[in-house]
């Protein structure tokens, strides 16, 4: 038995097909493509693993904003500063994400779709290179940890912090979720106009001659009201990362959403495993294409990301020798 759309429907839809003077111009398009391709910034063949990780962190922060936005209350409550919850990273929950889902999430990010109006109360500045650890400390407000075994870093970069407020546009947020393949109605109506506050602290990246990098920053903080069920919102996030309804529901119930950083890991780019760093549970990431390894952990109020060409064991040994 066929279930094809009826002929009348197909015929009507046929009206949208390109007319005689609207047919594809494939040869001309190919020439245009060649020009645009050559002009576009070419991603280097030796794509650095650390660059990928930095990008993932940005995506993760974006996803965090999405989920924390979903935790918020209507503006009347927010205006009363009735914030009961505070997100700080203490644990990591790596989620393997398919290349297709990554492409979809990237596309959402590239298209500039936002979950609402973002008002920066303190705009983060450009990253700046400083001459010494002392200079970095003066800007950061904390002394960056170093790895004496590697000698002096060849580059010390400091990124200033920033803060902002997000006012949720529920229609946009639902559109994003819909584009990511999630039932938009998982997000409650009470989110419309909700307001959240985010603080990103200054951070630093130390780079050594052998390519090893150490990023460190205090955990970002996100204030949100506490009376929306985070499990339901977390479920939406996990579905956006490509999980089935059942998987997302099960995992969302197991996660402590007040202190767990959900880290999407593209399955075609990296594998991950749990490791112990300085007595805490961290995350080891390995590029599947052999571009290097990384370990990510939290200690005190700080997050650390150590990347390099060495094995995970070698990176763990370096982490143990940090001072």
């Amino acid at each position: 038995m066929t279930h094809d759309p009826d002929e009348d429907v197909l015929q009507k839809l046929g009206a949208l097909a390109p007319g005689e003077d609207e047919q594809p111009r494939t040869a001309a398009a190919w020439r245009t493509f060649q020009t645009r391709r050559d002009r576009s910034a070419e991603q280097p063949l030796t794509w650095r693993f650390s660059a990928m990780l930095k990008r993932r962190v940005v995506v993760t922060v974006g996803l965090l904003l999405l989920i924390v936005a979903a935790f918020s209350l209507p503006p009347v409550r927010a205006a009363a500063s009735d914030f009961l919850g505070l997100f700080r990273v203490q644990k990591f929950a790596p989620i393997s994400v398919s290349p297709e889902q990554v492409a979809l999430l990237d596309q959402i990010a590239e298209q500039g779709l936002h979950p609402g109006s973002l008002i920066m109360t303190d705009e983060p500045g450009e990253s700046q290179t400083v001459a010494s650890i002392a200079d970095a400390e003066a800007l950061l407000g904390f002394r960056p940890r170093q790895i004496p075994a590697l000698g002096e870093p060849t580059t010390i970069e400091v990124q200033s912090g920033g803060s902002g407020r997000l006012i949720v546009d529920l229609e946009q947020l639902r559109a994003i979720m819909g584009t990511a393949g999630v039932d938009p109605m998982l997000l409650p109506d009470s989110l419309e106009g909700a307001e959240i506050n985010a603080v990103l602290h200054p951070g630093t990246v130390l780079t050594w001659a052998d390519g090893t990098t150490l990023m460190q920053t205090r955990s970002p903080e996100l204030d949100y009201p506490d009376d929306v069920d985070p499990v339901v919102i977390g479920e939406a996030l996990l579905q956006a990362l490509g999980m089935s309804d059942d998987e997302a529901r099960r995992l969302s119930r197991a996660i402590d959403w007040n202190n767990t950083l959900v880290l999407p890991v593209p399955a075609n780019l990296a594998s991950f495993s749990e490791v112990v760093v300085h007595g805490t549970t961290g995350l080891a990431l390995s590029s599947v294409e052999g571009y290097g390894n990384a370990i990510l952990w939290q200690s005190g109020d700080y997050l650390y990301l150590l990347t390099g060409d060495g094995s995970i064991e070698e990176l763990l040994a370096l982490a143990d020798r940090m001072e």
């Binding site: 493509f33 645009r36 075609n268 780019l269």
Partner: peptide
């Protein structure tokens, strides 16, 4: 449509190494 089609193929080209 032509402009968007270019974007689609550029994305494929840029991701050619990350696709199985």
């Amino acid at each position: 449509a032509e402009d968007l089609a270019q974007e689609v193929f550029l994305r494929l080209y840029q991701q050619r190494f990350s696709r199985r």
